[in-house]
Amino acid sequence: MSSIKLTQAVGLGGANNLNDVKAVQTALNKLLKLIPPTQSLKIDGRLGSRPDISKTVAAIKLFQSKVLNMLRPDGRIDANGRTHRKMNEKLLSIEAMANVNTSLEMPVTKAFWMKTAVNEVGESEVAGAKANPQILEYFKASKFWGSDDSGGQNAWCGSFVAWVMKQNNFEPVKNAFRAKEWTNFGKPIYKPVYGAIGIKSRQGGGHVAFVVGQSADGNYLFMLGGNQSNSVKVSKYKKEVWDDFVVPSNFDASSTHLPIYTQKASIAGSEA
């Protein structure tokens, strides 16, 4: 679905034609990451006898609030109106990302939290005062108070790791938004394995990311992390820059290994 066409308005006070409502419900289901905690909507083309309390209208309002920054969401999508145009913009963005191979093949591993981390590849900052709602969810997981995802003061690598681990029922460390605090998580290991959390120093602070592989010569590590050139991605680092590696306390590091990484990656860049 690249975009949706509407013949008339959908939502509160709208004509709510069956096919228009179905199109909006389908689109909102494609955009669920932008409007947490919304659950998948039933695509039935109906808003019920009380549209004001329908889940579809609630999702429209949440989209208007989180994505359009409306102070008073009206729960209505006018054909070619502001909400309709922004919805199509986001749908086109998702389609563009789908055409870029951001997916990673996971090795057979007991580091089950990595499925969550891999699924986040491609999430990126929004320039200016606005923010990617998913990155704000990372902030919540680490108890970071920021409302903007860009700029050095809002570095979010630690928040990304906190969100991933919290999704898998691990309690993040205190002050998880500070990368170097992750040295206090779980237990240390002395050789990196797939899924381990790596911590390193950088100018002005630290950086934290998940290990996903090594180069054939063993001199480089490939790390999946947040805020790597302002997005969630895999980047290539010299092995010696990483100071510490940790895993959950109950994780048997001998049950996994460090594979040779042959997939897409970028050279390590900005982490602030």
Score class of each variant (00 low, 15 high):
residue 221 L to T: 08
residue 214 Q to F: 01
residue 223 M to Q: 05
residue 205 G to D: 12
residue 198 G to E: 02
residue 218 G to C: 06
residue 200 K to E: 08
residue 230 N to I: 01
residue 216 A to D: 10
residue 223 M to H: 00
residue 208 V to P: 11
residue 218 G to R: 06
residue 213 G to S: 11
residue 195 G to Y: 03
residue 236 K to P: 10
residue 202 R to F: 09
residue 202 R to M: 11
residue 222 F to P: 03
residue 199 I to V: 15
residue 202 R to Q: 12
residue 234 V to M: 06
residue 225 G to A: 10
residue 224 L to T: 05
residue 234 V to L: 04
residue 199 I to K: 05
residue 209 A to Y: 02
residue 197 I to R: 04
residue 210 F to V: 10
residue 234 V to G: 04
residue 217 D to G: 10
residue 211 V to W: 06
residue 206 G to V: 08
residue 223 M to A: 08
residue 209 A to F: 02
residue 231 S to I: 02
residue 211 V to T: 13
residue 198 G to N: 01
residue 232 V to Q: 04
residue 224 L to Y: 09
residue 201 S to W: 03
residue 212 V to N: 08
residue 216 A to H: 06
residue 223 M to V: 14
residue 213 G to I: 06
residue 214 Q to Y: 01
residue 230 N to L: 02
residue 204 G to T: 14
residue 209 A to L: 00
residue 209 A to D: 11
residue 204 G to D: 14
residue 196 A to D: 07
residue 226 G to P: 00
residue 217 D to Y: 10
residue 236 K to I: 03
residue 231 S to E: 14
residue 214 Q to V: 11
residue 211 V to A: 11
residue 226 G to N: 05
residue 232 V to T: 11
residue 229 S to H: 07
residue 201 S to V: 01
residue 202 R to K: 14
residue 199 I to M: 15
residue 208 V to S: 09
residue 226 G to W: 00
residue 231 S to M: 12
residue 236 K to H: 04
residue 206 G to P: 13
residue 216 A to C: 01
residue 195 G to N: 07
residue 211 V to P: 02
residue 209 A to V: 12
residue 232 V to F: 03
residue 195 G to P: 07
residue 197 I to Q: 06
residue 213 G to H: 08
residue 225 G to S: 09
residue 221 L to Y: 10
residue 231 S to T: 14
residue 217 D to W: 10
residue 195 G to C: 11
residue 214 Q to A: 12
residue 196 A to W: 11
residue 205 G to M: 06
residue 229 S to F: 02
residue 199 I to N: 03
residue 209 A to M: 00
residue 197 I to G: 04
residue 220 Y to A: 09
